[in-house]
Amino acid sequence: MDPIIILQAGVASGTVLLFATIGELFAERSGVLNLGVEGMMLIGAMSGYSVALATGNPWLGVLVAMFVAGLLSQIHAFIVITLQADQVVSGLALTFLGTGISLVLGEGLSKAGAVSLLPMFSIPLLSKIPVLGPIFFTSQSVLVYVGYLFAPLAWYYINRTRPGMHLRAVGEYPAAADALGISVYRLRYLYVFVGGMLAGLAGATISLAVSPGWFSELTTAGQGWIAVGLVIFAQWDPIRAAAGSYAFGALRRLILDIQGPLTLFGLRNPFYYNPYWGFFLQMLPYAFTIIVLVIGSREAVRKRLGSPAALGVPYVRGERGL
């Protein structure tokens, strides 16, 4: 139980949550709540893995995963933006649909055998930094490195660029954005698509990099839902989303690794001698998600922060409202 190794693996596993969380964050910033993250991640994991298997090219797998999940997200976009239906139920439906399609098309994929994975490498100079080097910059998948750049770029895009401002306007005050000539519908479709693509990327990050393979529903094991929770904890801020994602990734790893050694802190390891105590460890990520939500929600009340004002509200042109 080397803490460096746990953190190193935790960063890799947190990258999955990072992509999914920031993708959902983009969609929610534009005013669309998409609860279909779990379904989109699954379909991304399944399609990425099967394409990599068929073509031998994991990069093509990643691209297809992003595209397919993006495509799936457009069903939700159509239902809630154009047809103005309830976003909660539609998102749930999307998770059912994505899960169902992945299970049907992924039939037999779990026994498919080895697939070429995305490259892993160390960064020359940075990996020599004590402690941080081995954790962050040694033999990580290329997608993990992409993840490091991702949160700051997303933050910069949302808060410091013109399109980012349009994104915020559409989510906070769509009528005003519309009056300024910004197409509310088009931007919402776009950012739901972005969210879908990133969920697909998150799925492919699982099946082609972090824990390779297809294990039907257990591939994601509820991480899509944790991502939705993390967006609330992050108060719709990409940097906090990244911090939360890595923390959860480390927790997931810790739970796996804590059951291995014979002794813990010089005591008999109860999780080794009674393996079924491990089920309490398995509850932790889900229990922590609830705790994190309590923290996030209390903070939102105290600081009078909150979700994007138009989150979950369909925009109807010419109707009074937000």
Partner: peptide, 26 residues
């Protein structure tokens, strides 16, 4: 039924169509 995910997929499809059809109520 093979493949085994079919009932789940049909359920998902039904729910999607159902929500989309809500539009016709309004």
């Amino acid at each position: 039924i093979q493949p085994s995910g079919v009932p789940k997929m049909i359920q998902g499809t039904i729910l999607v169509c159902l929500i989309a059809s809500d539009f016709l109520m309004r």
